[in-house]
Amino acid sequence: MIQLAKRVIRQTINDKRSVMLILVAPLLILTLVYFLLGDSDYVATVAIDPVAVPAPVIDALEQQELELVDITADEADQALDYLQQHEGVDAVLRFPENSAMDITLYEPSTKGATAISEIQEAMAAINPSAEAEVSYVYGTQDQTLFDSLGYVFLALFSFFFVFIISAMALVRERSRGTLERLMMTPIRRGEVIAGYTLGYSVFAVIQAIIIVLYAIFVLQLSNEGNIGWVLLTMVLLAVTAVSFGATISIFAGSELQVVQLIPFTIIPQVFFSGLIPLDLIPYHLGNLSYIMPIYYGAAAIKGIMVYGDGFSDIWGYLAGLTIYALVLYVINTQALKKFRKL
């Protein structure tokens, strides 16, 4: 078993692309995600007809982080056409005679939402009784999307990259005939899977440490709990990924087929990992998450990083992952009977 683990480590180190995929790719994507989901400092542009809008409102709007553009009364009447012709403008704000306020947006987007929230804040400034004070049990209003969803990516990365590499290595082992040769030595079937898992676990530990340190100390991902539990969860997730990869490799005839199976193996797990709140998924489809290993990892990491949970709160998820890995281990050991009944 140790022999096999050593070989897996040596083989992976000799293949530069695998090392990059495990150690560099997660950091690259995490950085991208940071910029995509982070605080954008976007300033929305709102068009108003200065004649029709009351002066205190204009004053209040100018106090907000908004770009104001003056338009004529005619343009304000034709708000839809105006927005279509002026791409840089996010919203047209009007005060028609018979209603309080009218906001026209180009499309339902984050830019429009920024414009609306700034306008609402301006209105609240004029009329303090309309202001709503929002408070949270966990987290603060200043947190970006990266803070509230970043944990999902920690789980995704520790699963995905190890899965890809281990599944491909095992498929290669089958197709090149080395697995048959391996099974003609006095190695036990269980040792093959255990050796693989052990070998990739070494990379999983290094990967988890690098990702977590980078996310928390460089990208300032907010973390309420103990980093140790995060690392443990990520490593456990990666161990499950090795077994998952080994199982998938049974159904793949070549490395290309591993890639072809990604829509069945990985993409559903991304949706059920916590990116979309499971309560919002109709027809109780959210329950499907229980058959997806990433769900257990992501839920545990969310517990630690967002709620500050300790072991007593997350052990259920860790147990779920462990059971998952054990079941796959048994399946994989049985599958090797194809090569040697013993």
């Binding site: 140790i2 022999q3 096999l4 050593k6 070989r7 040596r10 083989q11 992976t12 000799n14 293949d15 090149r176 005939g177 080395t178 048959e180 040769r181 391996l182 030595t185 006095p186 190695i187």
Partner: peptide, 24 residues
């Protein structure tokens, strides 16, 4: 075996050391 069944990412020595290890 008929096909070579070797680990391409290992050296000749690495391949031999691995199989030697499996035979203890």
């Amino acid at each position: 075996p008929q096909n070579d069944a070797l680990y391409e990412d290992l050296s000749a020595q690495g391949n031999l050391a691995f199989f030697g290890g499996l035979y203890h």
